[in-house]
Design a protein around this nucleic acid. Sequence first.
DNA 1: GTAAAACTTGCCATTGATGTCAGATTCAAG
DNA 2: CTTGAATCTGACATCAATGGCAAGTTTTAC
Lengths: 121, 121
Amino acid sequence: MRIGELARRTGVSERSLRYYEKQDLMTAERTPGGHREYGEGSVDRVIRIQELFAAGLCSEKIAQLLPCMRDSDGGPLRTANGQLVSDLTVERERIDRMIADLLRSREVLDEVIEAASVPAE
Amino acid sequence: MRIGELARRTGVSERSLRYYEKQDLMTAERTPGGHREYGEGSVDRVIRIQELFAAGLCSEKIAQLLPCMRDSDGGPLRTANGQLVSDLTVERERIDRMIADLLRSREVLDEVIEAASVPAE
DNA sequence: GTAAAACTTGCCATTGATGTCAGATTCAAG
DNA sequence: CTTGAATCTGACATCAATGGCAAGTTTTAC
């Protein structure tokens, strides 16, 4: 499929898909004319990339992480080296804190929303 | 206390504290000379603000939300109006998605970290 | 073959919280 | 009073992903 379809199917803009390629997060075959040609696996990969972006990882970390994930792209499964494991552990802790934070904030929102729905108090 | 101490006690930069004021997230008394003078409650308030920022809310939403939170600043407890409740509900759903996302990403990290710690497989 | 749609690269803009610097003023202590 | 530390305001920079535009090329449909 080409970039337009991939964008439609993933909900990620074409602009971002090109950016992902430049950041070495994904590759694409090229037609003789130079247009990108994606395989089916690209859909999952893009979604995974989006999730990791949403989790606050930067392009560089994601690029290092992807080859170590199973179901990544059918490529050889790499094992994370010491430095990467160390980095990912830091990220993991950050994510933990973020989850705790989100849970607290969600509670706050719930309280306010709840209070508004029970005006007679 | 003055801004330096508040910054130290909350881990938030002086720059950000002044920004919070400009965004109407908090107020401060002023000394005759114009220096900010914060009460004890400011510490909690700053921490709360930070949490909400971390949860992805923008200044404007936080500014609307704060007066509706208990233990906010001793001011009168406002009840969220319909528009705000609607906005907060949207935020709540976004937070839910974010949490789900983070849990998935954390799992991914755990798998990769785990795989690296068991090289013989 | 022609026209429209899709795609290409490259560049500049945006966002929103925060960093940083400069010059001026105030505060606290000697 | 003086001096150094702290604070003030205001302006400009940063970051990282994304948006948007322009000019040119490829593809697709007729």
